[in-house]
Simulated assay, not measured.
Amino acid sequence: MMKKLFYDGSCKLCQREISALAPKLTPHLQLVDISQNGFSGFAGVSKGSMMQQIHLWDQDHFIVGIDASLHYWQLAGYRKLVALLRLAPCYWLASKAYSYWARSRTNCAKGDCNL
């Protein structure tokens, strides 16, 4: 099964990032906009949970949050940035920053994605 990146197309920042990276990602990933009507979840994970943070399906399991972002940035060719962000102090900071950002956009699950 192909890798799938589940992103929130109702989030303007998310949509801009995915649109910019799509040409580099589509050879590697199927892009799935989970904000679309009719999407209820995938592989036992609900739409509500997926709205909390980004999910990437990798063959038979999910990669979630900052690790999902690092995975698709790597696929998009940002190897040096990913290598830097995987260093312990940078990874810690990136994880905290991602968690803060993800929490601050939790209203997306309710359809209100203003940051």
Rank of each mutant, 00 (worst) to 15 (best):
M2P: 09
L5M: 06
D8F: 05
G9S: 03
C11A: 01
C11V: 05
K12S: 14
C14N: 06
C14G: 01
C14Q: 02
R16P: 02
E17F: 03
I18H: 05
I18M: 07
S19F: 06
A20L: 13
A20T: 11
P23I: 15
L25W: 05
T26C: 03
T26Q: 05
P27G: 04
P27E: 00
H28K: 07
H28D: 04
L29E: 02
L29V: 04
L29T: 03
Q30T: 05
Q30Y: 01
Q30K: 07
L31P: 05
L31H: 02
L31A: 03
V32W: 02
D33V: 07
I34S: 04
I34G: 02
I34N: 03
N37F: 04
N37R: 05
G38L: 07
F39Q: 06
S40V: 11
G41N: 05
G41T: 04
F42C: 00
F42W: 08
F42V: 00
A43N: 12
K47Q: 10
K47G: 03
G48F: 02
M50H: 07
M51L: 11
Q52S: 12
Q52R: 12
Q53I: 01
I54Y: 01
I54F: 00
H55M: 08
H55Q: 06
L56G: 10
Q59L: 09
D60V: 03
H61D: 11
H61G: 12
V64N: 07
V64K: 13
G65E: 12
I66F: 03
D67Q: 13
D67L: 12
S69W: 10
S69P: 00
S69D: 10
L70E: 08
L70R: 15
L70V: 11
H71T: 14
H71A: 14
Y72L: 01
Y72H: 09
W73Q: 08
Q74I: 00
Q74L: 11
Q74F: 05
L75M: 10
A76T: 08
A76L: 09
Y78L: 12
Y78A: 11
K80L: 12
K80Y: 12
K80N: 03
K80Q: 15
L81A: 13
L81T: 14
V82Y: 04
V82P: 12
A83T: 12
A83L: 11
L85F: 15
L85V: 03
A88P: 10
A88H: 09
A88R: 10
C90E: 12
C90L: 14
Y91C: 08
W92L: 13
L93Y: 11
A94V: 00
A97I: 14
S99C: 09
S99G: 12
Y100A: 14
W101P: 00
A102W: 09
A102M: 08
R103C: 08
S104C: 07
S104R: 15
S104I: 04
S104N: 13
S104A: 06
S104V: 00
R105F: 07
R105W: 08
T106L: 11
N107M: 13
C108S: 11
C108Y: 00
C108V: 01
C108G: 14
A109Q: 13
A109F: 02
K110W: 00
G111F: 06
D112N: 14
D112L: 13
C113K: 09
C113Y: 11
C113N: 10
N114Y: 11
L115N: 14
